[in-house]
């Protein structure tokens, strides 16, 4: 009996703390975007929705956010899997098991500043290249920050995500007793390549899917990093939203809310797709 009450209590608390604020928030944003709430609201209108949906820059913004998240997470996963699979024990025991945690303590705003000072045309790498005689003037240093491909943004996210995934996969490796599986696979005649790509990587990725997806969403919604090291021509979604929310024209605020609702729908669709895929995989297994 007590057990059942505890279960109800736990789940109610869960709904209260995770779903309720967001449902309230999205409703508020939706009302705002339709001109139904806000100090300057003038009644129901679809103008703001028409404005953003008909704006090519808005779609580019969504596309660019997806691209940055996909590339950053892709590279970080590749690096961290390579690190962990090369030496699975290194990150759970010994010196590295402490040091690998250090990068987690660097927040996004500091990472943005660091990348700007490191990779900019007048940054530290450019200075070192100059001293080494690789370049003779700072103009020759490549455009790695504020560029249209988002190189600076991606590098920053990769630096932040790689240690995180390395810790994550190293622990998962142990927890899932992957070493034993791989040993088994070897005795069954699997070669090195097969062991990595047929056994280790799929197991780690499938078990870690929830966390990987969560991180993907963090990157897509990131603000400080694209703000400082991104380009103004192709913006990420948070940067554009804030610009609408806080820059000069109070009449633009409902548009900021419309962008957020649209973004929420996009992420919800991605999430739905992921859960569907996950269930299909589970069904197969």
């Amino acid at each position: 009996m007590q057990q059942r009450w505890a279960a109800y209590g736990g789940r109610s608390l869960f709904v209260l703390l995770s779903a309720v604020p967001i449902v309230a928030g999205v409703s508020y944003a939706l009302l705002y975007s339709l001109g139904l709430t806000g100090v300057m609201a003038e009644g129901f209108t679809l103008v703001h929705w028409q404005e953003i949906l008909g704006d090519a820059a808005f779609w580019r913004t969504l596309g660019f956010s997806l691209y940055v998240a996909a590339v950053s997470i892709g590279v970080a996963l590749g690096l961290s899997l390579a690190l962990v699979l090369r030496s699975p024990q290194a990150y759970t025991k010994g010196m590295l098991s402490f040091f690998i945690y250090l990068p987690l303590s660097i927040p996004a705003i500091v990472m943005a500043f660091f990348i700007f000072q490191l990779l900019g045309k007048g940054g530290w790498l450019s200075r070192v290249s100059h001293q080494l005689g690789l370049i003779s003037a700072l103009e020759q240093f490549p455009d790695w920050v504020n560029d249209n491909y988002g190189i600076g943004i991606i590098v920053a996210h990769v630096i932040m995500a790689t240690p995180f995934f390395t810790i994550f996969f190293a622990n998962l490796y142990q927890n899932e007793r992957l070493g034993e599986y791989l040993h088994l696979a070897a005795t069954l005649g699997a070669n090195g390549r097969q062991r990595i790509f047929r056994v280790a990587v799929p197991v780690l990725l499938r078990r870690g899917l929830a966390t990987v997806f969560l991180y993907f969403m963090f990157v897509m919604g990131s603000y400080e990093i694209p703000l400082l090291v991104g380009s103004q021509s192709v913006q990420m979604v948070s940067v554009r939203t804030i610009q609408r929310l806080q820059r000069y024209n109070l009449g633009d605020i409902p548009e900021a809310y419309a962008i957020s609702v649209a973004y929420t729908v996009l992420v919800a669709v991605l999430l739905g797709g992921l859960l569907w895929y996950n269930r299909k995989q589970m069904g197969r297994a």
């Binding site: 000072q117 900019g120 007048g122 700072l138 455009d143 703000l227 380009s231 103004q232 021509s233």
Partner: peptide, 20 residues
């Protein structure tokens, strides 16, 4: 940046002025 991008605020502008 060939006018493709513009600094976000004067702080990065000051920094890039300082380093040339």
């Amino acid at each position: 940046k060939e006018g493709q991008s513009f600094p976000e605020g004067v702080a990065p502008m000051h920094q890039m002025f300082a380093n040339g």
